[in-house]
Computed example of a mutant assay.
Amino acid sequence: MSIGNSPEDDRPSEDSAPRADDGPSIGRALQQARIAAGLTVDEVSQSTRVRGPIVHAIEADDFSRCGGDVYARGHIRTLARAVGLDPAPLLEQYGAEHGEPAAPTPATPLFEAERIRSEPRRPNWTAAMVAAIVAVIAFVGYTVVSGGDDDGGKQQAAEGATPATSKPATKPSPGKKPVDPKPDPSDSAIAAAPQDKVTVKLNASDGRSWISAKDHNGRTMFDGVLERGQSKTFQDSTKIDLVLGDAGAIQLYVNGKQIADEFQPGQVERLTYTKGDPEVG
């Protein structure tokens, strides 16, 4: 059900044209698969989060309402999976009819996703090395502070002092519990996310991407572009809904855990996360 749209918005654009060849068009193939699956447009809209008017328009081969070529491909892929079709032939057909995606340019419109990478994501070894160095420095500092007296005793014995002048090593009392070691300062701050809330962190490590975040009431928490190197953290008591314009450019952390994804550059993803172990809603 579409909220805030006039009846004219629910009708497909008149610019769409039927296919001239013998095979079914993209929209017709999606419509036939949806009907064969026993699904209504509203049911497909709810499961894919693609608005009903856009579903109607795509089934009529009108892609002008998708908001751009990248979003049109993302909608085709999402709808095809929802009705049990292989999206690859439909995307190939779309490319033959509308042209292949243009190469990335230095500046793009606000709501168009860029193709930043052409090769698979690799582990962020730089961040891992920095974390390891910080951990080593913290361990050395802790050792120097806590073991200063013992070092002094060893130095005095080396200079010829009698062993009786050095401090004996203290042993923990039988009734006392050992003090828990301090947490490694290299741990990410998001690892301490509260268990009674859902916490999502987005890091644009591989490029810039348009993102949208909403809380469990549907209120917008953020809607805009995350530039390369920037990060955003969102928190809600129940759930957080995300839309990633270029999911391949984003590193995602949910409730203190990094989400291992296979998102491709330029891929549009709609995700929902709740409390506990991160699972896509």
Rank of each mutant, 00 (worst) to 15 (best):
P178E: 03
G152P: 01
G148Q: 09
A169L: 11
R117V: 02
E119T: 15
G147T: 12
L110W: 15
V136A: 06
S173L: 15
K167Y: 03
K176E: 03
P120A: 04
A158P: 01
P172E: 08
S118M: 03
Y142F: 10
S118Q: 07
V136D: 05
P172T: 14
V179T: 15
K182W: 06
A103F: 11
D150C: 05
P109M: 09
K154A: 07
P174H: 13
P104K: 01
P174R: 14
A169N: 09
G148A: 03
P183E: 04
R115M: 11
P168F: 01
A103W: 15
A135D: 02
T143K: 05
R115K: 08
G152W: 13
K154Y: 13
R121P: 02
A128V: 14
P123E: 08
G147W: 15
A169E: 11
S166E: 03
I133Y: 09
T126S: 05
M129W: 12
T105C: 04
T165I: 14
D150M: 10
D151C: 08
R122K: 10
T162R: 04
D180E: 09
S186E: 04
E119A: 08
P123F: 02
A135W: 07
S146D: 02
E119W: 01
V145K: 08
P174D: 10
M129E: 01
W125E: 06
T170Q: 11
S166Y: 02
A138G: 02
T143W: 13
V130C: 00
V145C: 00
G153V: 07
W125G: 00
G152N: 08
G141E: 01
K154C: 00
P172Y: 15
T162K: 04
P181L: 12
R122G: 04
D180W: 00
K176W: 10
A161T: 13
K176L: 11
A132V: 02
R117E: 07
P163E: 06
P109F: 04
P185Q: 06
A113W: 01
K182F: 09
A164N: 10
E114I: 14
V134T: 09
G175L: 13
P123C: 01
D149L: 06
D187K: 15
P123G: 03
T162W: 15
G148T: 08
G175D: 13
A169M: 10
V179A: 09
A128H: 06
T170S: 04
A164Q: 13
D149N: 10
E114A: 12
R122M: 11
T108L: 13
V130I: 14
K171W: 15
T170A: 11
G152E: 11
A113V: 14
R121G: 07
P109I: 08
P123K: 02
N124K: 07
A127R: 15
E112K: 06
